[in-house]
């Protein structure tokens, strides 16, 4: 970053830009984004510190937070009850703020498998699990998972037995879902950290199932 124009007097708020962008030309919408954030800072609607802090929150949010909740639920039946009652309250026990929108965990059992989608947009428990993957927001996933979920799951390598009911949950702006996967066989005796390690983002969306370490 060049510093020859801003090397004295810090009257300009620091640009909320990052080096990964600076080597490429700015697109129209990137320019709009930077312009809007700078205008909001100039008008004291938001502060540069709040922008930086929120970037850090976004960077710190990942599926690992959800995996911890799942691993605890697998290990502690009382916690599982609380998780199924309210993911947000259960996350708070870990000191995690799961965001302003209520999240419900849908429990997979030997007879029922759950999968989540947002057909109308891309609602996702992102305050808990981080930003959703591109495919979750794609036309193909949003269109098809409510119509032919078994075929979509098969594309992710997940073959469900025919006698397992598949339930698709369509999220809304005011209500989000996550899947509480079924604890796989062969994981007896594993501690919570080892269990959390096999719980992936895709398991909590419901397109895959966790696998015991070393199985495949």
């Amino acid at each position: 970053m060049s510093d020859h124009t801003h090397d004295h007097g810090d009257h300009h708020p620091p640009h909320p830009m990052q080096p990964d962008l600076e080597d490429t030309p700015l697109t129209y919408h990137q320019s709009m984004t930077l312009a809007v954030v700078e205008l909001l800072i100039e008008k004291n609607v938001i502060s540069a510190d709040e922008v930086r802090a929120m970037h850090e929150v976004i960077d710190a949010t990942s599926p690992a937070l959800g995996a911890k909740l799942v691993a605890r639920a697998w290990s502690d039946a009382e916690f599982k009850k609380r998780l199924l009652k309210s993911v947000n309250d259960a996350a708070a026990e870990f000191g995690v703020d799961a965001g302003p929108v209520p999240i419900r965990a849908m429990e997979n059992t030997t007879g029922v498998h759950n999968v989540i989608v947002c057909t109308l947009c891309s609602c996702y428990p992102k305050y808990l699990l981080g930003l959703p993957p591109d495919w979750y927001k794609s036309r193909a996933y949003r269109s098809r998972v409510v119509r032919e979920p078994r075929a979509v799951l098969a594309e992710f390598g997940t073959q469900l037995p025919g006698d397992v009911d598949l339930v698709v949950h369509d999220s809304t702006a005011d209500f989000r879902y996550m899947v509480l996967p079924l604890r796989p066989a062969g994981t007896d005796g594993l501690g919570e950290e080892e269990l959390a390690a096999i719980v992936t983002r895709d398991c909590m969306i419901g397109v895959t199932c966790p696998k015991a370490p070393g199985s495949e």
Binding site: L131, P133, W135, S138, S143, V146, R147, E155, F156
Partner: peptide, 23 residues
């Protein structure tokens, strides 16, 4: 409003969110 519409295979692409997207 695309739920239930016909569409091709789910392309399992993803990318790490870029800085401007996080902004």
């Amino acid at each position: 409003d695309m739920g239930g519409a016909e569409a091709g295979p789910v392309e399992q692409t993803e990318h790490a969110p870029e800085s401007w997207e996080k902004t």
